[in-house]
Design a protein around this nucleic acid. Structure first.
Lengths: 217, 217, 217, 217
DNA sequence: TATGAATGAGCCTTCATTCAT
DNA sequence: AATGAATGAAGGCTCATTCAT
């Protein structure tokens, strides 16, 4: 067992500490000194392992985005065995539970939301590496649900409706206690949300399908 | 007419410059010197007019949130003359067009989204002064749409579904060119979005109403 | 009497302190903290007044080179009233006494010599502003002394011989106590040196003139 | 042959790389990491081989000064077979060509000049090991040339005149392209310089000898 | 013999703020 | 009402060095 173990190496401790600090104070508001102290490491260790503060920030973002990627990989592999409604449910669930899973460090979700609200150079990587693929997956699901078939714009609008409902909880998480007092975001609550979003969206789409296929205008 | 009435007073120029800077670099990333220079004012002017940097930030946020409040006031006054579907449409429109209106300074929306992604003490004021009222308004509309009547939780879930779809475009604005290449956010595009969200949501609710009122499933 | 008095202003104190420090430890070896402390000023004052450390360094060099420029100006104005041998003596004296004058801060000479031994961007300014003019002046004197007239190269070589003898004492000043133990560089000593260099050079040139003008080869 | 014999040992590569770096940026301005990288060695190798950064610097200076010492040794051994004018020429040539020889790494000369402009503890070694002997040699030559004999001071002054003319080119090398545009410092140019300095100095001394030996002025 | 990881001290610079005017 | 000068604290980063291997 060498010191490069990914478990508790200086590098890994820095990543975790940085995640917390960046999520708490933002990139500019988080001093590298505080990060290194929380990681029980030297200030110079950051530059040694990551080059500079921003490269550390990028690495932290990657760490956060990768965490939930497993769920989507699994979903992709099960695509053939699940019907389209199940895949919609799976997508929403992956995003929502993958994002708010109480087992996941809180800062993952917040940091990603902050980066999306104020995108920097790092977002490019996140996008090409993960976000764009996820959105394509959702568009595929939605396009299968829309019958009679929809044009590109309509698919996009429906995909955004599903995505918007889901991301709302991730992006509003900081405000949820204030907005929805009494609502608990435990596993149970998350499944309630998932079920609602799926049912709400499927209902809207079914209604749309019925309307379009009706003979009159 | 004193100089404090002037629309172009130092104080106002500072507010505008600060809005741009804060939106561009975040609170910690925007140096007061850059703000004062962009406002063509002295560094000390900020502390003179606002006390300190954070109070300036709060003032800027208030400026941004107040800008769109007129639309909601109008909506409230028209409540009696509009049917509930129109009020839903009006709410979505107020939020979406009020947020992305090309005539509005770009930083308004971005800054508010950033503050919501990473809430500070200033959010409290925003919430009690504006956000909480808006959400209550939406809940009222949704509760009227839900028939048979829904319990508190279901109202909230439906309100969140509407709100989530709408906020999605505000909060993703920075990423929209990348996510939805070719989509134009001009007045026309905004109305398309508004119409879709309203139709999608109404369809989902109607379907729900039908399902619930059915003697059994 | 305002605070911008050139006498004892923060800016001037910084220049003097920086001169000493840079001369003592070199540009890279002199911490700005030490400079500001010696100047009884804040660290930030350096960046406020000069922009950055290197611009301070350039200003210090200019201060040093300007100090002696008066002597050369005077020499230029007297050019018509002095014969050429006197002007040669004047030139050597201006350089030597202007450089080692005990009334002059010691660091002036050392710092200029250091910059010449390891030229940076700042030397360009020194050269165009002062050095090149001085060398032209010396070439003019030497060319008048050379009779029969000399070509460009020969003038240059003779000018370098005069200049080299003179600069030797400036550039070796740090080593003089070791090389020439017992030699005092007071006003008296400097005039002895000046006289020697002038006599030595004139002798060499006269001998050269005689040799060239001799009919045989 | 052990690895420490090798001309391309880590130790030697460090010396060469350090010479370049120190000459380029000065002692304080040259980071050990850059040196070790240029030498294709580990950072710790410097401390391992030399103890610390300054000891490396001293070693580099010694390397530079030793390079030219062979010429002077040869000159000393030939002392008996050459007349005094030839020995003067030889001395100047050793210094000038030994210093500016295009075959020699450029940094040798520059680094020595820098150390002389800003002497540190290392200069002591250089002085006792080399410089003082060279100066003594020149004084001996000059004293033989001065006839009628001169006192100590006069010998010193004349030696400094010869030395100053010669060192001028070494110490001004960085500025020569700017001062003497078009002058080429190839082997041919160096011999031109050597010949001029020797002739100039001999002429001055002959004239002096004539003047002194004249019954009166 | 030689190294990659890690360190504490120090670097220059910039920060938001204050003060005398 | 407003400002230019100045400040102490803190910023991110780099330094020469050390240590376990």
């Amino acid at each position: 067992m060498t010191s490069s173990d990914s478990e508790n190496s200086t590098r890994q401790r820095l990543l975790d500490a940085a995640g917390e600090c960046f999520a708490q104070h933002g990139f500019h508001g988080a001093p590298v000194r505080e990060i290194s102290q929380r990681a029980d490491a030297n200030v110079a260790a950051i530059n040694y392992h990551f080059g500079d503060k921003y490269k550390l920030y990028e690495s932290v973002l990657l760490e956060a985005i990768n965490y939930a990627e497993d769920r989507f990989s699994a979903l992709r592999q099960q695509a053939d065995t699940l019907d389209v409604a199940q895949r919609l449910h799976g997508f929403i669930s992956s995003l929502l539970i993958g994002g708010l899973d109480p087992a996941r460090p809180e800062w993952h979700c917040k940091l990603l939301c902050m980066e999306m609200a104020d995108p920097g150079p790092a977002l490019e990587t996140l996008f090409t590496k993960s976000l764009s693929g996820r959105f394509g997956m959702l568009r595929q699901i939605v396009s299968e649900l829309l019958d009679p078939p929809a044009d590109d714009t309509e698919i996009t609008l429906h995909a955004c409706s599903v995505l918007g409902q889901t991301l709302f909880y991730l992006r509003s998480r900081q405000m949820l206690p204030k907005m929805l007092p009494g609502f608990k975001l435990d596993m149970n609550g998350l499944e309630t949300l998932t079920a609602h979003i799926a049912r709400f969206s499927l209902a809207a789409i079914e209604e749309r399908n019925r309307r379009i296929s009706r003979p009159d205008g």
